[in-house]
């Protein structure tokens, strides 16, 4: 397996889009004796959408959840190797996982708004992290960013659970980006949504990548092809291929990748 290093491009304002913001080095993740992720080393680039694809049970969600230490809550799970966020291993002793999750936000498979008002859903993350000023502005800004504000501006005090599935998921994204994290991890964010709602989320992702680095796990290959810049294919816990999305889908280097993207395995 070869990984072609991509040249960081300098964009307007001197921001180096494409520089690695997150990297894994020889990561092994085991549930008991079963290795779910085997010796994975990869780099996630800043302000890009990186898709992680592969058949069910290939370990893609497990890997994603190691990026912000959400695996800490799973008993019997062990992580080996390094997951570096801006050069620092998040699994290093003395690193507070709460601090990591503050910088690396997460959106889950099933929309999971809090059973609280729409406003509170967005403001809670801010308030527990000690941000108390301009709350209304911050909430509005986050809702505008996910293109939800116009739909909910008259019912900010209604329960978040009264929204449709797609709206709930956009609310969950708003909740995550209100904290202005650097990276947003998305674990199959559209798998519980209908095609229209999925389309809106995909449009949103393309908009969000201007500000955030996004890592999205998906079992929907078309989705990966549509939205991602880079794509990683996993099979049985192994990183089989990682490259520019266009290359992975049109000129896969590995046989297994080709079989997967053409629908012969998976």
């Amino acid at each position: 397996m070869t990984i072609v290093p991509t040249q960081p491009k300098v964009e307007e304002g001197g921001i180096r889009a494409g520089a690695p913001i997150l990297s894994t080095r020889n990561v092994w993740i085991r549930y008991g004796d079963h290795a779910a992720i085997k010796n994975v080393s990869m780099e996630i680039q800043e302000k890009r959408i990186t898709a992680i694809i592969g058949p069910s049970g290939c370990g893609k969600s497990t890997l994603l959840r190691s990026f912000n230490r959400m695996n800490d809550f799973i008993e019997n799970l062990s992580t080996e190797g390094q997951v570096c966020y801006r050069g620092e291993n998040v699994y290093k002793k003395g690193i507070d996982p709460v601090e990591v999750r503050r910088k690396i936000g997460m959106v889950f498979q099933k929309p999971n708004p809090f059973p609280k008002t729409i406003f509170k859903n967005v403001s809670w993350g801010l308030s527990i992290n000690g941000i108390k000023d301009n709350m209304a502005d911050r909430v509005e800004k986050a809702l505008i960013q996910v293109a939800l504000f116009d739909e909910v501006k008259d019912k900010l005090n209604k329960s978040g659970l009264e929204l449709s599935g797609g709206q709930q998921q956009r609310l969950c994204i708003a909740r995550a980006i209100a904290l202005e994290p650097e990276i947003v991890l998305m674990d199959e964010p559209c798998s519980a949504l209908d095609p229209i709602a999925t389309m809106r989320i995909e449009d949103l992702l393309l908009e969000l990548k201007k500000k955030y680095t996004i890592v999205i796990v998906t079992h929907n290959m078309q989705q990966a092809a549509r939205v991602s810049d880079k794509c990683a294919f996993f099979y049985n816990g192994d990183l089989i291929e990682f490259g520019e999305t266009e290359q992975v889908f049109t000129r896969p280097r590995e046989k297994q990748t080709e079989q997967y993207v053409t629908g012969r395995i998976g």
Partner: peptide
């Protein structure tokens, strides 16, 4: 899912 949502936002 509620606990996960809160942890994901950097809650203790």
């Amino acid at each position: 899912s509620i606990r996960q949502a809160a942890y994901g936002l950097g809650a203790t």
